[in-house]
């Protein structure tokens, strides 16, 4: 068996709540997550499930009224002496110097909207060199040359010309490449990508994904990829965590998730993908809507939409069930199973 890879970030019972006038929204409601060094973890879920908020907490950029209420984000960084040092990001001051030295330098992020994530007021080069100059000792000229090299690396044609362009003069795909170049500028340990291909057309999506995978190999980066697109997950992920209403309902390696999904939500998600080879009358969407965040269902949050819901699901919150070393699920169906197994073993 392959040796377990080192954990880069370990999230323990993380809770992020939004305190609004209408009430408290539990956007992230106690998640556990291991991000392994050099691997790609895909965080999957429908809109509003809390995946974007969860990944923003890695950089402490959850915006108000959202707040990390409890839990730990243990990040293993290399300190100046090259030794491992564990930092709990959840406890760093969001405006402090320590988290700022991690942002952009050790953990970089690219966003869903390449159209609006770059400021139209400054040239692409200005915004890339800003990051370089912030985190390194490079001079203005050196940083400018680095920016051109980076743009070249993300396959932008004529990088020496484009570096002087304003973002609004570029296409969406080009802008996302520029964003990736910016994220790579300080050679980060980890790259968080929040639906980076959602706003792009399909052919551009494929190009950007290929580019990201390629760069991940080159830079030995850990990738945390947030998406709702299972096709993308199949292409890039090593590990998959499925989120629903602030909880991670199932977590395993990519093959297990696609071949042996256990949670009814994961199963429904996979069923809802249109398949070309299989003739079917209609699409098979998940019934119902994501519930109103202010009126979360009691018990298991998925029970109103679940095809296998039982009476207990309305009242009992399922615990995390460890199916095997690398597969957890949060569903009452399997709690009993494990219980029975344990009982059998006890006999």
């Amino acid at each position: 068996m392959e040796k377990m890879s080192e954990t880069l970030v370990e999230v323990k019972d993380l809770k992020i709540h939004f305190f609004t006038d209408e009430g408290v929204v539990r956007a992230v409601d106690g998640i556990d997550l291991d991000v392994k060094r050099g691997k790609t973890l895909a965080l999957v879920g429908e809109s509003g499930c809390g995946k974007s908020v969860a990944c923003r907490s890695f950089l402490q950029i959850v915006h108000s009224p959202g707040r990390i209420v409890s839990g730990e984000i243990l990040y293993t960084r290399k300190n100046e002496n090259g030794q491992g040092e564990v930092v709990d990001i959840a406890r760093l001051n969001p405006h402090g110097r320590r988290i700022r030295s991690i942002r952009g330098k050790e953990i970089a992020m690219i966003f869903q909207e390449p159209m609006t994530s770059l400021s139209p007021m400054y040239t692409v080069g200005n915004q890339i060199t800003e990051t370089i100059r912030l985190h390194t000792e490079a001079t203005k000229q050196e940083a400018w040359q680095m920016a051109i090299d980076l743009l070249d690396k993300v396959d932008i044609p004529k990088p020496d010309r484009l570096v002087e362009e304003y973002p609004f003069r570029l296409s969406g795909g080009m802008r996302q490449r520029a964003m990736i170049a910016m994220a790579l500028s300080c050679n980060p340990t980890m790259l968080i990508a929040d639906e980076p291909t959602t706003a792009l057309d399909v052919t551009t999506q494929a190009n950007i994904l290929d580019l990201m995978l390629d760069l991940q190999q080159q830079y030995h980066m850990t990738l945390l990829f947030i998406t709702h697109d299972l096709g993308v997950v199949a292409e890039i992920a090593d590990e998959v965590a499925v989120m629903y209403l602030g909880k991670i309902v199932e977590k395993s390696d990519v093959n297990t998730i696609f071949n042996e999904p256990k949670h009814p939500y994961t199963q429904a998600l996979l069923r809802s993908i249109p398949k070309i080879a299989v003739t079917r009358e209609e699409l098979d969407p998940i019934k119902g809507m994501v519930p109103n965040p202010y009126r979360r269902p009691g018990g298991c949050p998925f029970h109103p939409r679940c095809a296998k819901a039982m009476a207990e699901c309305r009242t009992v919150v399922p615990a995390v069930t460890q199916l095997n070393d690398n597969h957890t699920v949060q569903c009452l169906l399997y709690e009993d199973l494990v219980g029975e197994k344990a009982m059998e073993q006890a006999k």
Partner: peptide
């Protein structure tokens, strides 16, 4: 989004505020 993106790059709040 461009403010959030700049914050994620590690800019201090004051510099961020003035520049963007």
């Amino acid at each position: 989004p461009y403010v959030e993106a700049a914050r994620a790059r590690g800019l201090s709040e004051l510099r961020l505020l003035i520049k963007y």
